[in-house]
């Protein structure tokens, strides 16, 4: 593993076994021998249709699922005191209407990861900083609000604040804008870009919208039926894609009629 890589995924296969009560068992191949590396400080886009295994990949990196075969390795990162440790990974989920607890205030939601990580000794100032950096200003107004009083865009900002509060090295954003209006979605994308530039957080941006991916990503991987069918820098994907699925995605983003896909 060279110095630039943060996560390397080698030959990962994930099979889901389905055991029906009457029908016997069947299995679904969600990821088929995937290899991918995420570089430090980049925004890597993963594009694919529903059921192509994008979210499974995210869950494997997060450690929520174990791969059936293959390995996922993390590079060591060094902090200011030059101690080496494994990178911290956080996640932003697709649906901001469901991913925030209705029973907790915004302050509690954002403080929870700190609480889990540092115990009672966490610094409350960090929560305020996180909310400030996602643009929920004035912070005092939002700290004691409940999620149901916020709009979709504001909720997604809370989800992002929750992800950045523990200062992770990498954030996995699983379709963060697909539930939002396009005018609000652009603001969220700009926020992700800003986080990437200012704090150097690595992003894994999962989406089915190729236009959004080309807007913020450095590199793009296209997934189809559990395989990565194309991988390359953004420019290369747009101008000289080789797979027909990428082509159909580009065509639908340009507003052309898709004939045979």
């Amino acid at each position: 593993m060279n110095g630039k890589e943060l996560v390397r995924i080698t030959d990962v296969t994930k099979v889901f076994k389905k055991t029906g009560f009457f029908r016997g068992s069947s299995s679904v191949l969600a990821l088929d021998n995937i290899s991918l590396s995420v570089k430090k400080g980049e925004i890597l886009g993963i594009i694919g249709e529903s059921g192509s295994g994008k979210t499974t990949l995210a869950k494997l990196i997060l450690g929520l699922l174990k791969p059936t075969s293959g390995s996922i390795s993390f590079a060591d990162v060094r902090n200011h005191e030059h101690e080496s440790r494994k990178p911290a990974v956080q996640v932003i989920f697709q649906d901001p209407y469901d991913s925030l607890s209705h029973m907790m205030t915004i302050g509690e939601i954002v403080a929870e990861p700190c609480f889990i990580k540092y115990g009672r000794s966490y610094v409350p100032e960090k929560v305020r900083q996180a909310l400030e950096s996602v643009g929920l200003i004035p912070v005092d107004e939002y700290l004691h609000k409940y999620p149901h009083t916020l709009s979709g865009g504001q909720r997604q900002r809370v989800a992002i604040a929750r992800a950045i509060v523990t200062q992770p090295d990498m954030i996995i954003a699983d379709e963060p804008i697909s539930m939002l209006d396009c005018s609000i979605g652009v603001d969220i994308l700009n926020l992700i870009l800003e986080m990437n530039e200012k704090s150097g957080i690595t992003f894994l941006f999962i989406t089915h919208d190729i236009a959004a991916a080309t807007y913020i990503c450095n590199n793009i991987a296209v997934m189809k039926a559990g395989k990565i069918v194309e991988y390359g820098p953004k420019k290369q994907i747009i101008s000289q894609c080789s797979h027909e699925y990428t082509d159909s995605l580009l065509a639908s983003a340009r507003g052309e009629v898709i004939k045979n896909y």
């Binding site: 709009s151 005018s183 609000i184 652009v186 080309t214 983003a253």
Partner: peptide, 24 residues
């Protein structure tokens, strides 16, 4: 006008796109 300009188009070069600030 703002709705139309907040569209993301396919672009190889980075161009800043602005959403609509504020809330409904």
């Amino acid at each position: 006008q703002k709705l139309l300009s907040s569209r993301l188009s396919l672009m190889a070069e980075p161009v800043k796109v602005n959403g609509i600030p504020g809330n409904p």
